[in-house]
Amino acid sequence: MSVSPPPFSSTSDLTPDATKPRWGTRWLGPLVLLGPAGLWLLLLLVLPTLVIFQLSLVPNIRPGDIVNPSGIDNYLLVFNPTNFRVIVRSLGLAVGTTLLCLGLGFPVAYWIAVLAPKRWRNLLLLGFILPLWTSSLLRTYAWITILRPTGVLNSILSTIGLPTLEILNRTPAVLVGMSYSFLPYMVLILYSSLEKLDRALLEASADLGATPPQTFWKITVPQALPGIAAGSLLVFITSLGDFIDPELLGGASSMTVARLIYNQFLGQTQNWGFGSALSVVLIFAVSLSIALLLKYGDSSATQR
């Protein structure tokens, strides 16, 4: 059987000009549709970002100073060892949180989307995202109550005769708090991705001799890859910007990029230029990771 691909349609090229809408009307539709959001984005995203970029080029700028871009000193400051370590630390925390959320979220999302009875799904999801309805600050304080030396966790541990844990004011507490905060997002996104999973593919895999674990790694995970990527990215970016959890749970070594940026604007020594440079670096790093992900993260996604 010879199946020839359909020839590229060239009808649009051959369409006589007379049938084309006039220039004005052709652009009117998109303009009306995109205009409001576009204006919104321009005013509240593009313009401020450009302002931040310009600020980042002024060394030692403080409120009241003239904005007069004059060099990249602020960027050199970003990469001095102290600040660079803060960035690396924040990236580490974000990556750790992302992995934790993925590890904890995937089984849950898989269970809700694939194994749980259909009529329970919405309720289960609702139950899972219920914590999002409370303030994030409240949730963080709840963790303090649980993790503090004489808190809920240690009371339980000592009641059942186990040694108590010193978690609060250490990095593990930050990871616990952040992954708890962002887990619902991960679960929601993974769920929507796994829900679309064609069960026939799993059966096909079993039919071809794959054991359930093999099917999971070779079929389920690749099929859910766009969801995994989207969820991870969302969690990564949000946790990179989080400073409530590190601040309240991280103890004496809680400095993160977000907090560092905050300090440059609202701290005791204001340095808007350096803060802006840090922001630009952060924006750049995040954009780059998104771009890389889009390009290489899921090559098969482009086939869909």
Partner: peptide, 9 residues
């Protein structure tokens, strides 16, 4: 399979 269930990745 009825709808082939090919692995599209």
């Amino acid at each position: 399979f009825q709808n082939y269930a090919l692995f599209d990745h």
